[in-house]
Amino acid sequence: MNGESIRRNQQNLQKQRDVITYRMKKLAAKQAEITKKTDEVKEKIQKKYEDMKRILDEDLRITLTQLDIEHEAAEKLVEERIEECYHLTQELDQQMSETDIQSADTEKRISETLRLTDPDLIQMDEFKNQQLLSLTINLLLFIRSQVPVTKKLFQSYAADVVLDTDTAHPKLIISPAGDSVTYTDTWQDVPETECRFDTTLNVVSQQGFSEGRQYWEVEVSGKTYWELGLTYPSIPRKGREEDSWLGRGKDSWCVEYFNGDYTAWHGGVPHELTLLAGRKFTRIGVYCSFPGGMVCFLGADTMTPLHCFCAGTFTDTLYQALCPGHDNEGTNWKSLKICDASRSAPVL
């Protein structure tokens, strides 16, 4: 290569380097923009929660003050009645020291005092107080029905997921409704299809999605090994390539549970979720935002965040994917069951 060619090559490389450098600046600016927007939303939400707390605290103060005022009024009346009785006893003591004859007027005063100071005549408005308590209980029930707010939001994105029997590994049994998958030691007599997994215990959904937002939940209770997530249709189905395992290639995202440990996978990179070690959930939720390029996993019982992947932009249709795992020394025979994500999971 002569000097002129070297110079042109260096100029070309410099231009490409400048382009990459500029791209890095743009990415840094995007990072700052994302951080700023996230912080702004977090601040607004926090202020709203603080407003709600102030409103509830003020309402509590008003309600308790009303009860205190009524209590003080009733207590004052009781004290007045006690004082009346006390003064009368003083007068009677005086009369007893002066004469042993009780006048008719005295008898009348005693009778009238006993009538006016009858404790049964002093009543609190218990019916109204019970109504206050009932309204408070209703408010609590309403608040509980609205939280966690992430649950209410994700429920609005609930997807109807049906598993595709033509994709299921031959050692998997798919329910007639397509809503559960079970591992079995017995090789099923199923037709060979191009889309069927033949080495990994996977099954994917019949329908994919390529826009909007979707949320789905899987019941995982009683199992010691499972994987679930999302995948492009391009995930390898045949042979012993590791990429055919969920999350091991760039085609899929998943969370894996094995003997008490959680690991999030994508592109063959494991993210050990050590803070969740030993935690058990009845349901696992998966939220996907196509506009945001997000795949988020949650412990749906309490909406506990597990892990979130950001793909930036999805490049193909996404399908729900499940792996119920092998028998795991006889501890993992239960099914993975797709739940109605529009309804709340039981609280543990």
Rank of each mutant, 00 (worst) to 15 (best):
E227N: 13
I82T: 10
S234T: 15
L318P: 03
T302Y: 06
T182S: 09
Q31I: 12
E192G: 00
L64N: 10
K280Y: 10
D261A: 14
G285T: 05
E107I: 14
R279C: 14
Y22V: 09
A168V: 10
Q90K: 12
G268F: 07
P170N: 11
E112S: 11
C254N: 02
A300G: 01
I20Y: 03
S289R: 06
C296A: 15
L318E: 05
I338G: 02
E4P: 06
A341W: 08
I82A: 06
L135F: 07
F154L: 12
R17I: 15
I174Y: 05
Q95P: 08
E98K: 05
F290I: 15
P346L: 09
R8M: 12
I34K: 05
V255P: 02
E43K: 07
I82L: 04
A264C: 05
K37M: 10
G229C: 01
L141F: 06
M294E: 13
K53N: 12
I6D: 04
Q10R: 09
M52W: 00
S289T: 06
I284T: 11
L64Y: 00
I137D: 08
L88A: 12
T35H: 05
R109K: 15
L116D: 10
C195W: 07
I174E: 07
M24V: 15
N328D: 15
C310Y: 12
K30I: 15
D100T: 10
E329L: 02
A104T: 14
Y86E: 12
W226K: 09
F258C: 01
D51T: 11
K152Q: 15
K152H: 02
I45Q: 00
G299F: 08
M294T: 15
T117G: 07
P191Q: 01
V41R: 10
Y232T: 13
S180I: 06
W187P: 11
G260P: 08
A321W: 08
E272T: 14
K26T: 14
Q188N: 06
K238S: 07
L88P: 05
V78M: 06
G299P: 04
C339A: 13
L27N: 05
R81A: 07
G299N: 03
T282V: 09
C254P: 02
L135N: 10
S175T: 12
V181Y: 00
D51W: 01
D68M: 06
K15A: 12
Q94Y: 14
L276T: 02
R81E: 11
T89P: 01
Q155V: 11
I45S: 08
D68H: 03
C296W: 01
G222E: 01
C339E: 13
M303C: 08
E70S: 07
L27D: 12
H169C: 07
K30H: 10
H326L: 10
G229M: 04
A168D: 07
Q11L: 15
L92V: 15
K48M: 11
K36R: 13
D68L: 09
S175M: 03
Q146K: 11
Q131T: 13
D179K: 12
